[in-house]
Nucleic acid binder design. Structure first.
Lengths: 144, 144
DNA sequence: ACTGTTGTTGATAAGATCACTTTACTTTAT
DNA sequence: ATAAAGTAAAGTGATCTTATCAACAACAGT
């Protein structure tokens, strides 16, 4: 039930971008320094987030990264799904990326006890992470 | 946020043992066949559960495995912690196996926004899995 | 005591994932 | 033109997952 470093770093990076949203751009090494993330790994993460349409970048002198959505439009759930895949503990209870468990001895979905519990766990996790936006996230942040 | 196969198989195996609890013992190949688990992997899992004191085994002809606790005394949370480690998404919010994040830029725990959200996620997951016992689990099972 | 069944242990290994690192290329402002 | 900055792909070592295999130990029933 672990969150990967990738997602954690991604969330921290987006937090920094949210804090300067509308005011400035941030370069990768700024983000890396403020959140103590290895720069090269961060690059990979930012690239993924860019492909997903959450941020955009500008090259050259005075370049950097910016959010291209409003902070209250991006939920932590979305970010984690982009970086880590589905929130569900097992594939057969994922709503965004369902896949049936080939080896499950219960032909009918409703009959599998594991699936039932994990379904409620999924709903609990998604209920929190899909209703928590970057804006909420930044609001929890101590003022520098 | 994934549950490992190990935990999933472990839960399925314990489910079978719960279904025959007080009535019979089950041999490893019985459990493996009923839940379609590779026998050798299952053995490893059963051994871990045995060391943790949830089950015991008997050798020789007519041997097998049995639960040595009452099904309502074993929660799914306990089982997953034994097989997969802490339920918390990140180490710094685990209550059973806390470890501080060395690289976190926020010296004070209360100030880290990631930690705050993940703390609520942990509580939600634990709230479900620590209040759901093998007995509840078996009650959801379709009668053969 | 023997025999067959079962449990225990340890070694091994393919494959995936994680957390980066390296290298090379492209774009932009001046 | 050039230096600063971002883009992109490939590679790497460590660890984890998911097993598989073989050898050995223990036990029950005859």
């Amino acid at each position: 039930m672990k969150l990967s470093k990738k997602s954690e770093y991604g969330l921290r990076a987006l937090l920094e971008l949210t804090l300067v949203h509308g005011k400035a751009t941030l370069q990768r090494h700024d983000i890396a320094a403020r959140q103590r993330i290895p720069v090269e790994f961060l690059e990979q993460i930012l690239l993924t987030l860019k492909r997903a349409g959450l941020i955009s970048s500008r090259r050259g002198v005075n370049g950097g990264y910016i959010l291209i959505k409003q902070p209250n439009e991006i939920t932590l759930g979305q970010v984690i799904r982009i970086l880590d895949g589905p929130l569900a503990p097992i594939g057969c209870v994922s709503k965004t990326a369902y896949q049936k468990c080939s080896d499950c001895p219960y032909a009918n979905k409703a009959r599998c006890p594991v699936q039932q519990v994990m379904g409620t766990v999924r709903d609990a996790i998604a209920g929190i992470l899909d209703h928590y936006s970057l804006a909420d996230f930044a609001a929890d942040h101590p003022k520098s």
